[in-house]
Write a protein that binds this DNA or RNA. Structure first.
Ligand code: MN
Ligand code: MN
Ligand code: ZN
Ligand code: ZN
Lengths: 131, 131
DNA sequence: TAAGGTTTTTAGAACTATTCTAAACTAGTT
DNA sequence: AACTAGTTTAGAATAGTTCTAAAAACCTTA
């Protein structure tokens, strides 16, 4: 968890108790996709009680500091992704779960870089499957 | 507007006054992307007063009957697209406006058809530009 | 290590997009 | 015209998220 403190400081964030607990959940294993609610209830389940306001604060500030990426999948809630590298997603409609697609697995031609003089800031691909 | 009545009947929907007015706005010109709120205020502006509840009802029922397609761009609101053919989108972040990308303009390789035994139900691509 | 200023956390209120409720109205059928 | 099922509506309810402002924690400096 000392490396988590470094990670937060490197991002310009104070390593508070709550941020470290959330980081420990999000960044200690493999990549994951969470919603505010799923994060809140997973932490609660394991005895970590952090207010929902803080969950939202931390998800938003982690996102604005590049530790998370926000994904629009469903207009009723936000997903946050611990994988901040470029990649795409499968979305399982029944379970509402996401799965990463490595960027090399899907070629896009031509890869757009500009449109009407504006830079492309991201390319979001979601492949929805009926399962 | 007689063709709009036919269009609604063909979709299995009663051509009520409100549905015809909304259809006239949505389906008489070229394709467009609306939110419940933009549709409500555009209609109001032109003197067509339909309750917001009906706007939502109609957008949802048109979507479930294949006359519209719902797009997730922003977790804070839903967009509805009068273009129901397969296509992709540019999203202008500053103006929050969408622009269609013809499916032939963007090649995806390999085009996924299945994942873990589940059929692909749609492929959503959004290219965000900073303008 | 103790202040002291600044940032963060928190409970609960507020906000906003959307859906629900149930009563009034309308469309299609006989 | 009367009947029935479907639709519209205002307003209430819901749910995800943000705001407020007071208390707590963090970090710098002495
Ligand atoms: Mn956010
Ligand atoms: Mn909907
Ligand atoms: Zn991901
Ligand atoms: Zn479109």
């Amino acid at each position: 968890m000392i490396n988590l403190e470094k990670k937060l400081r490197a991002a310009g964030l104070r390593p508070t108790k709550q941020r470290l607990l959330i980081s420990n959940y999000l960044f200690s294993g493999s990549h994951m996709h969470v919603t505010a609610d799923s994060l809140y209830s997973e932490l609660s389940k394991s005895g970590v009680n952090i207010s929902l306001a803080t969950i939202y604060n931390v998800l938003n500030i982690f996102t604005s500091h590049g530790l998370l990426r926000e994904i629009s999948i469903d207009s009723s809630r936000s997903y946050f992704d611990t994988n901040t590298k470029k990649h795409y997603h499968y979305y399982y409609e029944k379970t509402a779960k996401l799965e990463d697609i490595d960027i090399e697995k899907l070629q896009i031609n031509p890869l757009p870089e500009k449109r009407n003089g504006f830079d492309v800031s991201s390319i979001d691909i979601v492949i929805r499957v009926n399962g």
